[in-house]
Write a protein that binds this DNA or RNA. Structure first.
Length: 950
RNA sequence: GCUCAGAUGGUGGAACUGGUAGACACGCAGGACUUAAAAUCCUGUUCCCGUAAACGGAGUGCGGGUUCGAUUCCCGCUCUGAGUACCA
């Protein structure tokens, strides 16, 4: 039979499903290997050809590992809570669960036809109550925990309560809110339960607090920082504004240092680690308190610190008014010539003198009007206003002006900076613009035209640190600040606590009810707290989230939390559920976690760098702290597959004098000299940039009578690389390719396209080559009449060499995730063996095993035709490479003169360098090049090259 | 601006530790088979000089360097892509 890929693929997909071929064992003597893909959000559009790229790579790896004798866990599931299904529900009234169900069915059908070796018995869906029961359970554990800095781990809140009862707040070193109170054990015990609860909330790892959030009015919800791009929502592109709201937050900042340190222990792409490092944004410096000189007119109330300011000082207490700044260059403190506050800083109003009030109010009003985008675009223009007040430099005693300017961000550090114009370019420009003093503080500093942030040289104009070096000065200043109580060494993080509530319907309900305005967990036995039915998926008239619409939805008469969890909740632990997907007494059993431990290989896109991948590491560390999992890091090795971009084709429509489009289309090579407009044309009716004219006429009704100006009888289309999207007519659907070429061809072609990690535009042009390869491979097992025919003869040396070459090559390539090069090598092997007319079982049977991870269907079929027991190929041992077959006794040495290769000479590999040298020099052709001159030098590298230097 | 990644034929890409640059494929050109088409097979295909071949020259973004030898290592630059941004 000819290569009937449709029958073969259908047959084997059915076989694998029927026999649960890829079901992973939980108890086996084999070593475990966990290969994980980032599970998809099942969108209505289905898969395009870019989606399966990573899945194919991981599937090849998983299948390869099975051949190598590992017990492989290779699961798949759906991250099925999310905005699109809900938006669709708002528009149509269809329950998101139904939309989700339909989309999952589409995904499953598409995935199944690609022939993945997923263990579907472990499928998870984040929107299923059996699953989100455990997401809620983890939320409860976080609520019941606090972060003990002394132990550097999360501990039970009951332990904290015990401490309070016995010792009060003394001796507690926690990551907590800024405004905590100090109390003795007696004071604690005298507190009402409500007072105790509200105090504890300041310590819990998930907590409720009024905070400034990214509010997206169009979506009616808050968004996390990583869901906002340049002031617009990542999904939908709607404007986002800042708003104060009571919100659930996750105290991820408690783990900032561990998240940073852990990066050094995992095998992830360096750019990805770098992104996480930047996101965490650790800066080491000092916090410095500048006292305010003139007593302001109105006394500011007790200073409140910024959101997420986890461990700041509270110098203001009982010491008079002060402005606290954060600096990474405490050494430059003598160069401070003014202070700058963010316009939103709470001390701005009390500091503003009556004379300056007009200017300050005008500036604040103007700054408020600026959108995030304008403010960024405006980055180069200097603007600000003087408050009229002064502050005292704590080490120099110098009196400096206090200004406000929007180059200081309210959300970072303390929202105030000490301006050192000699060392900081922004301060420099500001000082120049407003004619403020600039004092050089380092002897080698050059501040003629710009600030010089050097750390070299010795200090001048700097009091007690004059003459010191950078290192000495920093230490001396920090020591002095601590001595006089005006500051201390401090580490600042850019990362904020993660907002954990969404005012949406289609997410996990938060397992919390309210009593006297305080949140309490529901009883664990009442989990899962199932999403209630609502009449509409919109906020209520009073602006409450959709869950407020649910009638009779309460906890023993007390109201539930109406926010739901954000999209990343369910994906922050899902890899553990696969280990034990049907457990209803734990998120996964201890034994399962002890056996599978962590993910050995995780493949997915780098777009999750600062979202999913960071939150997952955070939850994992927390689960480790409370003893529920065994590894500090969840994903040992991670590979980013590159993005598949779209490749759009264009036709060029001729435009008449009036600027109207005509019905004439000009081939790309001829458009110069004509007035044309480019139009996207469906890439599926273009083959190697040649437009199929008949299909084009049917593409759109108004093209039916299109006319063409052709080049060489063909219409050549233009090409551009863009995002793959329906509106650009550049979406290539895997279903169509599978229909034409089969899944094995698609799998191999996706790998053949280029290195996995590289982004590249999709181009179907080369797929024929892979298809031809598979047919050629099939033909090796058949005679001219398409009868299956293999010979039992002993293989020749050449045949064995080809085979063992590919055995070794695929091993090396798969281990370093270089799948594209193995596809080439398969082609070379099949070309060689075809040339040798090899149809020997001894060779072909091994070759089938080696190819099977890439093209599993055809290999299973041939394996069965070869007379092996059906369906067992997946667990057959990978052939053993035998170097003996690779041994050559001769090698064609390239002979180069001055590094330029001139010829090849066959020389026995047993000769040593001096013998080779003699042999080469004796050669007549070599002598011709030498032209009777003696070579200056000869380099002989055995088994590699001979170079003659003239 | 900063950080990271990258730049090789008409195209996708290969060359893993410095050792024959362009493997493998696409495309293109020519040919075989065929009434024809499809399928299949064969030959050629980096560029320049040259009638083809032989021979010769240039060549891995640009300019230098190290080396017997550089796509690979070092220095400087250009461009492309990604991330990030008044982060004090």
């Amino acid at each position: 039979m000819d290569y009937q890929f449709k029958d073969i693929e259908k047959k084997w997909q059915q076989f694998w499903a029927d026999h649960q071929t890829f079901k992973a064992e939980d108890k086996t003597a084999k070593p475990k290997y966990y290969v994980l893909d980032m599970f998809p959000y099942p969108s209505g559009a289905g898969l395009h050809v870019g989606h399966p790229l990573g899945y194919i790579a991981s599937d090849i790896f998983a299948r390869y590992k099975r051949l190598k004798g590992f017990n492989v866990l290779h699961p798949m599931g759906y991250d099925s809570f999310g905005l699109p299904a809900e938006q669709y529900a708002i528009q149509t009234g269809q329950h998101p669960a139904i939309t989700t169900e339909t989309n999952i069915a589409t995904y499953r059908r598409q995935l199944d036809q690609i022939g993945f070796s997923f263990d579907w018995s472990r499928e998870v869906r984040t929107s299923s109550p059996d699953y989100y029961k455990w997401t809620q359970w983890i939320f409860m554990q976080l609520f019941n925990s606090w972060y003990n800095k002394d132990a550097d781990k999360a501990e039970a809140i009951t332990k904290l309560v015990e401490h309070f009862e016995q010792n009060g707040s003394a001796g507690i070193n926690a990551v907590c809110d800024d405004e905590i109170s100090r109390f003795t054990s007696n004071e604690w015990n005298a507190k009402s339960p409500n007072e105790q609860q509200s105090e504890l909330l300041k310590y819990r790892l998930t907590y409720l607090r009024e905070s400034t959030v990214n509010w997206c009015p169009a979506l009616g919800t808050v968004l996390a920082n990583d869901e906002v791009k340049d002031g617009f929502s990542e999904r939908g592109g709607f404007p986002v504004e800042q708003k104060k709201m009571m919100q659930w937050s996750m105290r991820i900042t408690a783990y900032a240092d561990r998240l940073l340190k852990g990066l050094d222990t995992i095998d992830w792409p360096e750019p990805l680690k770098e992104m996480q490092r930047n996101w965490i944004g650790k800066s080491v410096g000092a916090s410095v308190r500048f006292t305010i000189e003139a007593s302001p007119k109105s006394s500011p109330k007790e200073r409140t610190l910024k959101n997420g300011e986890a461990n700041s000082l509270s110098f203001g207490e009982g010491r008079g008014e002060a402005i606290e700044v954060f600096t990474t260059r405490a050494d430059t403190i003598f160069g401070t010539t003014f202070l700058v506050l963010a316009p939103e800083h709470e001390l701005v109003a009390p500091l503003t003198t009556p004379e300056q009030k007009g200017a300050i109010d005008a500036y604040i009003a103007q700054a408020k009007k600026k959108s995030e985008l304008e403010r960024m675009a405006d980055a180069k223009t200097v603007s600000g206003a003087f408050t009229g007040s002064f502050a005292i430099n704590p080490v120099s005693g110098e009196k400096v002006q206090i200004w406000i300017a929007d180059y200081v961000l309210a959300g970072y550090g303390t929202g105030a900076v000490m301006a050192v114009p000699s060392g900081d370019q922004r301060d420099y420009l500001f000082a120049k613009h407003y004619h403020l003093p600039i004092i050089p503080i380092i002897d080698i500093q050059n501040i003629e035209t710009e600030a010089d942030p050097t750390k070299e040289g010795h200090y001048i104009n700097s009091g007690f640190i004059n003459g010191l070096t950078y290192k000495e000065a920093t230490a001396a200043v920090v020591a002095k600040l601590e001595e006089i109580g005006a500051g201390k060494a401090k580490v600042n993080f850019r990362m904020r606590d993660a907002i954990f509530g969404r005012q949406r319907y289609w997410g996990e309900p938060v397992p919390v009810y309210f009593k006297d305005g305080l949140p309490y967990l529901i009883d664990e036995k009442d989990l899962p707290l199932v999403l209630p039915e609502v009449d509409k998926y919109l906020p209520t008239e009073s602006g409450e989230p959709p869950l407020a619409r649910a009638t009779g939805w309460n906890y023993n008469g007390l109201p539930y939390e109406h926010s739901t969890m954000p999209g990343w909740a369910g994906s922050s632990w899902y890899w553990y559920r696969y280990m034990d997907a049907h457990n209803d007494t734990a998120f996964a059993s201890e034994e399962a976690i002890e056996y599978w431990k962590d993910v050995d290989l995780y493949i997915g896109g780098s777009e999750h760098a600062t979202g999913h991948l960071l939150y997952s590491r955070f939850w994992n560390k927390f689960l480790k702290d409370i003893g529920k999992v065994v590894e500090e890091e969840p994903f040992k090795k991670l590979i980013n597959q590159g993005m598949i971009q779209g490749r759009s084709n264009f036709v060029y429509r001729l435009v008449d004098e009036l600027g109207r489009g005509t019905n004439t289309f000009i081939s790309h090579g001829l458009i110069k000299g004509y007035h044309t407009v480019p139009l996207h044309v469906d890439v599926n009716i273009v083959d190697n940039e040649i437009l199929n004219l008949e299909k084009f006429k049917k593409f759109r009704p108004d093209f039916a009578d299109a006319e063409f100006i052709l080049e060489n009888g063909k219409y050549v289309c233009g090409v551009e690389v863009e995002k793959m999207s329906k509106s650009k007519f550049n979406v290539v659907n895997p279903d169509d390719l599978i229909e034409r070429y089969g899944a094995d061809t698609l799998r191999m072609y996706e790998m053949f396209l280029g290195p996995l990690e590289q982004s590249k535009p999709w181009n179907t042009n080369g797929i024929e080559g892979v298809f031809k390869f598979l047919r050629k491979f099939w033909r090796m097992f058949h005679n001219d009449a398409w009868d299956f025919r293999v010979s039992g003869d002993e293989p020749t040396k050449a045949e064995l060499k080809s085979l063992h070459k590919i055995i070794r090559k695929v091993e090396e390539d798969v281990e370093r995730f270089s799948f594209n090069t193995s596809v080439s090598s398969f082609m070379i092997a099949v070309n060689e063996l075809t040339d040798l007319k090899c149809n020997k079982r001894a060779i072909l049977q091994e070759l089938v095993i080696v190819l099977s991870p890439y093209a599993p269907h055809i290999c299973e079929e041939l394996w069965t035709l070869l007379g092996n027991e059906a369906g067992t190929l997946s667990y057959t041992p990978y052939p053993k490479f035998n170097p003996a077959y690779m041994v050559e006794d001769e090698y064609a040495y390239p002979i180069s003169i001055n590094g330029k290769t001139k010829m090849n000479l066959n020389i026995s590999l047993s000769l040593d360098p001096s013998a080779i040298e003699a042999f080469v020099l004796a050669n007549a052709d070599v002598q011709k090049y030498l032209d009777h001159k003696a070579p200056k030098k000869m380099i002989v590298v055995k088994g590699r090259i001979v170079n003659i230097v003239l």
